[in-house]
Structures are given as structure tokens and as C-alpha cells.
Amino acid sequence: MDLSAINPAVLVASLMMAAVPIILAAIGELVVEKSGVLNLGVEGMMIIGAVCGFVVAVKTGSPFVGFLGGAAGGAGLSLIFALLTQVLLANQVATGLALTLFGLGLSSLLGQGFNGIKPPATGKVPMGPLADIPGVGPVLFQHNLGVYLSIAVIAAVWWGLKYSRMGLILRAVGENHDAAHALGYKVVRIRIAAILFGGAMAGLGGAYISLVRVPQWTDGITAGAGWIALAIVVFASWRPWRVLIGAYLFGGITVLQLNLQVANVPIPVEYLSMAPYLITILVLVIMSSGRGRAAAAPAALGQNFHASR
């Protein structure tokens, strides 16, 4: 057992990277759920984003265009969900699950011929001398764009939901769609916009996996990250900064347990492997068990809206 080999700065830096796909997908889903729509197809949208991002990046040679492609792919798939649930009023739970299965199959088809190819490398954001500050440098100033983007998106969503008029309307639609409708807001249109945003974010998270984190394309590459994102939204009681905490906790323990294995810590590997799931759920349950727990979920979550009056 040699804990001195684990460098805390490097550990924090890599947990920030490991958490990016989950943060992006979870914050997208948070906005969707705040508008009163439950889209269980996060995993499907992520993997479509992963394959689209990968294909576009390989074809154009630019990882940046690849990320745009991933976001577009995820949004495209979520458009199917929007059409089915908002226009045709299909059941949201069933449609979301179908979306995941469809996304997994479609991504496997789209990815044919792209196995084993190396994507163009995504560079770090140049921070000049800041990157060399001991301790702080590796943690804060040596990342690629995705890490900064994920934090920026959390901040933007938090501010948008809390302080902007747009956020207020979105929340109104999610809490009581009849009242919002009576006030003259276009409930269906707002929800479709939210679903597209959620799809684009999930796609971006997926593209991050296939372009930066792994980086390559193989079938089933997201390996359940979308489900974790969904769970984190619920346990974070629909609050943006708690999503960040949840995702860092999950990413952190995932990275830490591998480091502990390398350092020969005498804890059975089975416990270390299940630790990320157990601890993340435990902490988020404790965090959300206080006052206001019942009121956390948007009141109209999962209910379809039809303007009959």
C-alpha cells in the first residue's frame, strides 16, 4: 500500500475530465425535466452524439466541428422524441426507453467502418504561464475546452432558470402547463425547444466520450453514462449546482477507486468497483432528504399537454 503515489492535484484534474459527459447530459436533462418532460432517452441521444461527433470529426479533421456534429446528432434524435410526445402525445416513458434502444442500434449502424480509427486530437486550452503554477495549474488550467464548457453550461443554466424571464416561463410550463397556457405561453413549442437543448447537450456529452475521453469509436461506448446522468438529475433534486457535485462525486470515486487499486490498498476490488454508485446515491439522498424534498420535482413532470380549451 503506497498512498503517496496518488497525486491529489492530478486526481482532481482527471476527475474533472471524467465527469464532463455526465455533467453535459445531466444538465440538458435537467432543463428538459424542468419544462415538465421526462425524456428517458438520454443514453440513446448520447451514443448518437458520440457516433455523429466521431464521424464528423474524422471526415472534417476538426474536433470542434465534430462536437457541433455530435450536438446536432443528439438534437436530431431528440426531435423524434419531441414529435412523438408533444405532437402525437405518445407516452413519454415508453417513448424515451424506445429512443434509447433505437439510438443504440442506429449508432451501431452509423459507426460501421469507423471502428479502430483514431480521431483528430482535441488540444488543451492554452493558458500560458497559469498552467505551470504548482498544484493549482494542473487542476484549473490544463484542460481541454469540454471541461470549461461543462462548468459554463451549469452556471448558465443556473442563472437562466433562476433569474431570467425565459427561465421563469420554462419553470411555469413545467409546474402547471394549463396555467402557462392560459397566460398565453406556447407550451408545446417551449417544451420542444427544451427537448432539443437536452438532446444537443447529451449529444455533446457523447461526442466528448468518443473524441476526448476514450478516444475512439466502438459499439456501446457510452456504457450506461446516460442512465447515471438521469439518476443524478433526480438525486440532485433538479438543481444545477448539485448536478455538478453529483457528477464530480461519481467521476471522482470512479477515478479514485482505480488509483487505490494501483496503490494496492487492501480493500477488496469488488467494493471499490461498486463504490462510485453507492456513495453518489448515498450522498445525494442525504443532501436531498431535508426540507422541500417533495416540492423538488416539477409538478407537471411526465404529463402530456393538449390545448383542448
Binding site: I6, V214, Q216, A223, A225, L258, V262, V269
Partner: peptide
């Protein structure tokens, strides 16, 4: 140093395991 991934195929997990090893000087 041995790391058990408990999977035959999970690219993200395999990459994380490699990363943990590299971070510790392997």
C-alpha cells in the same frame, strides 16, 4: 501494478484504468 476492470469490454473504463496506471508512474 494490477488493476481489475471487471469487464471484458467497456472502452471508457479501460481508458480510465490505463489513465490511473499512467498517473502513478507506469
Amino acid at each position: 501494478s494490477v488493476v481489475w476492470a471487471y469487464t471484458w469490454f467497456d472502452p471508457a473504463k479501460e481508458a480510465d484504468a490505463a489513465k490511473a496506471l499512467i498517473e502513478q508512474g507506469v
